[in-house]
Amino acid sequence: MLAALGSQNASGAELLPYTVRNDSVPAPLGGLSGDPRRGRDIVLDRRRGNCLICHSAPVAGEPFQGELGPPLAGVGSRLDAGQIRLRLIDQSRISPRTIMPPYYRIEGLRDVDPAYRDRPALDAQEIEDMVAYLRTLTD
């Protein structure tokens, strides 16, 4: 429970504290600034974001795009940075039954593979990079 507020996890990495306001986390995690080019790579990388398993995005040369979540095209017009950030941290705070994985959460997960236990799926810098990239996807 307290883990989300910044305790040490097993690998010694820190889950940075953040504040949720309405449906948004207004401040960047750890005050980090994101790089949209790195964010794009993370979104596409099958071993990191692997977001296109569920979403489509306006990127050329990606034949198999997912259809379980809404298209990411235009998301930068629909949502501000803080709203995107919370959805990446933990979409279930907005829709408890969502199928979208929580990318920056470690508590309340069950039967996690030991190789991934006690650390978030993506780190704070990766979250900020993706926020920066998704903000560029405007209509």
Binding site: L52, I53, C54, F64, Q65, G66, E67, L68, S92, I99, P101, P102, L109, R110, D111, V112, D113, Y116, R117, A121
Partner: peptide, 25 residues
């Protein structure tokens, strides 16, 4: 029916709720 793993998904969420949809290829 229980969510599991770092990606926090149950079998049912894929095989009941999303059967017939495409997961990439």
């Amino acid at each position: 029916h229980r969510r599991q793993g770092q990606l926090n998904l149950s079998c049912a969420q894929c095989h009941d709720d999303n059967a017939g949809r495409s997961l990439r290829g």
